[in-house]
Amino acid sequence: MSKMTKKAGSSRYFDKDIRKYSDEDISRYIKEGMQGLNLSAARKHVLRQEVCFEAARCRDGIARRILRRVNVFMETTFEISLAPVVTALGVLMVGVTALGYGYFMLPSETHPGNPAGYIQQTSINPDGSTRIMFIPADRRG
């Protein structure tokens, strides 16, 4: 009679009936069952290559991530520092232009006592040049 008992289904390959035992026997039952189950050499080779490749990508990823963060920082700094200034200048220019509108009453050259009305438009260009225009609006006589 071989060492293995054949009286009960799942325990037939073991010395004793597994049902009668506890932790060690269950552990042995499972371990012996899984014995010899290994990854093939080819599969391990592929896995090693994949791990190497992914770890390298991960390493590159760190460099890329740092670079991206620097870029984001630069862009953010640039946008934050310049955009509000440009916007503010734009608002200011519109404000100056708007404020530059005025209405002037000037004495008529030809008809004293009949003043002439001019709309004054002052515009300041982004290059700093200023233009003041007087548009005739009311010229009597």
Binding site: L37, N38, L39, R43, K44, L47, R48, Q49, V51, C52, A55, A56, C58, R59
Partner: peptide, 21 residues
């Protein structure tokens, strides 16, 4: 592994491969 050593990936797979399987 992070420094790209090939032996490290071999070690990792050898140590965990069969157990994980």
């Amino acid at each position: 592994l992070m420094s790209g050593e090939e032996s490290a990936s071999r070690e990792l797979v050898s140590y965990f491969g069969d157990r994980l399987l």
